[in-house]
Design a protein around this nucleic acid. Structure first.
Lengths: 169, 169
DNA sequence: TTGGAATGTCAACAAGGCTGACATATGCTG
DNA sequence: CAGCATATGTCAGCCTTGTTGACATTCCAA
């Protein structure tokens, strides 16, 4: 992008990379890749009477222990009724613990129990294994590009949430 | 992260790019980006009493006009009952046409009508606009990496379907 | 002619979204 | 202190989109 003048190969690429055909390929790549992305955890969850929604909650509670319900709602982008249904089962099953806030007692702070952390590991190990294989196949430069494009694709709110998590809230 | 003496920004990256932390970032990037990826079509579809399932069917029928139901089932990865419910409404609403096969009359070949193509355009224009913006922000080299990683993340079956579509079935 | 493939359809069910309404605690502000 | 706002939980009902199982029809191919 910032090299001087273009070689012909380079220029062709630059001129073509915004064609509808290229964009369509990216769209289909996202579609098919997302299926692979969720496939392994989904298989594990199916045996446990849990679904993708439980996985997401567990992931982000593990990521930011002590996070509040409101926080989680903002990250997950669902209604509190929808999240609550999921949290209720996770708490009932002893995977998540909900503690009343100390400074503000209206808030509930969420933590994984040991059992919750065990499931989280199992799920994220599976998902990371696929990610690791993909990263290895593609190489570090491809990975940098991958993240750049994904980040540019996010809504502003989500990009902020992503960066906050990434850089340590 | 990228300062420094060593060409080692590079070497650090190479050594670190398979850490769990890097993998987790990729996982979260996929999660947040996929939300953005589907957001614009979802908004359009909400007004039309259609959902993401209709969008997917319309997309792949447009992509491969005359495709059979079985073909579509393999690509979408859902049951025929689930797909059929979607196709029935699209056919009833005059967006999709189903023609009995000529060589094999058991097969149904699916085509978009003019109205179907109009909706397809509306949906994919919205999705492409976001993709285009992301591509432009990230640049052609990032885009190449993006596609490489996504392709490596797919299940084998899906990768085959993706490549077949990409290279012109 | 017969088996199997491709398709369509019915019924029932579940997950996980949604809205709307309402209850309870708690914090904050005038 | 009164009253409003905030954070959370919960009930009820609805929708989409996935699932399984069963069954009918049509038609190709051995």
């Amino acid at each position: 992008m910032s090299e001087g003048r273009m070689t012909q190969g380079n220029m062709g690429e630059s001129l073509l990379f915004l064609t509808d055909e290229q964009l369509r390929q990216g769209i289909e790549a996202m579609f098919f890749a997302y299926r692979g992305f969720t496939a392994d955890p989904d298989r594990i969850l199916a045996d446990l009477a849990y679904g993708r929604a439980h996985h997401r909650a567990i992931h982000f509670i593990n990521r930011a222990p002590g996070t509040t319900v409101n926080n989680l709602l903002a990250i997950l982008g669902v209604t509190k009724q929808s999240l609550n249904r999921v949290l209720r089962t996770l708490i009932a099953d002893g995977l998540v613990e909900s503690r009343v806030g100390t400074s503000d007692k209206r808030e509930r702070h969420l933590y994984l129990t040991d059992a919750g952390r065990a499931l989280e590991s199992q799920l994220s190990d599976a998902q990371r294994a696929r990610m690791r294989a993909a990263y290895r196949d593609a190489g570090p430069e491809a990975v940098a590009g991958f993240k750049q494009v994904l980040e540019a694709m996010m809504d502003n709110d989500m990009r902020r949430a992503y960066v906050r998590l990434r850089d340590g809230s």
